[in-house]
C-alpha cells in the first residue's frame, strides 16, 4: 500500500471517531484492520489528531501484542500456545512450521506468502492443539495436518504425503 493510500485509509478511520483519548485503541485497531499494520506515518497522524505525543502513541502500540509495524504474510498462521494446547503438543506444531516454512515465529516468508505467530489461547481448548490460518480455526491439529494446511495454501509440502493422513478418531 502506497503512502497516499495509507493516509486516505487513516483519514477514513479518524472520520468515525471523536478526538478523545479513550478512542486511541479503537482507532489503532481499525487502522490496522484497514492497512494490515501500523506504519509510522499513520501513528504520527493519529497522534496529531488526538493531540497526543507520538511517543505516547508509540508506547501504547508497543504495549499490546495485537499491534504490528510490518504487514503479515498473505496467509497469517497463528499457533495457540495456551495451556491446553501446550500439553497436547502445540510446540511440535510450531517446530514443524518453522522447519517447513524456513522462518521463525514473528517472521514472514521471503515471498510474502506466510507469516507465523504464537497466540495465547483462542478459547477452543477442548479441541487442542489449535492452529488458525487467516480467519479459519483448525482443531486437533497434528504435525501431518500442519503440512497439509500449508500445502493447501500453496506452501512447501508434498501433497501425496498429506493424502494418507488419518482423520481424527471418532469421539
Amino acid at each position: 500500500m502506497g503512502c497516499a493510500d495509507v493516509s486516505l485509509a487513516v483519514e477514513k478511520v479518524l472520520d468515525r471517531y471523536e478526538r478523545a483519548r479513550h478512542n486511541l485503541i479503537p482507532i489503532l485497531q481499525d487502522t490496522q484492520e484497514a492497512i494490515g499494520c501500523l506504519p509510522e506515518a499513520a501513528l504520527a497522524r493519529i497522534a496529531a489528531y488526538l493531540d497526543l505525543s507520538a511517543n505516547d502513541v508509540f508506547g501504547v502500540v508497543t504495549f499490546y501484542s495485537q499491534f504490528r509495524f510490518r504487514p503479515p504474510g498473505a496467509h497469517h498462521i497463528k499457533v495457540c500456545e495456551g495451556t491446553a494446547c501446550h500439553v497436547r503438543g502445540s510446540g511440535l506444531l510450531v517446530e514443524e512450521l518453522t522447519r517447513k516454512l524456513g522462518i521463525e515465529v514473528g517472521e514472514t516468508t521471503g515471498d510474502g506468502k506466510f507469516s507465523l505467530e504464537r497466540v495465547a489461547c483462542f478459547g477452543s481448548c477442548a479441541l487442542a492443539p489449535v492452529v488458525v490460518v487467516g480467519d479459519k480455526v483448525h482443531g486437533r491439529v497434528t504435525t501431518k495436518r500442519v503440512g497439509k494446511l500449508i500445502g493447501e495454501h500453496g506452501g512447501p509440502n508434498d501433497p501425496s504425503e498429506a493424502k494418507s493422513e488419518e482423520e481424527p478418531a471418532e469421539a
Partner: peptide
C-alpha cells in the same frame, strides 16, 4: 488488544481510557 494483565481491573480501566494497560 492482547495483553493478559488487562484482565486485572485497574489495568483494564487504563486500557479503556486509551493507555498502556
Amino acid at each position: 488488544a492482547g495483553a493478559f494483565v488487562c484482565g486485572e481491573e485497574t489495568a483494564l480501566m487504563a486500557s479503556i481510557e486509551g493507555r498502556r494497560g
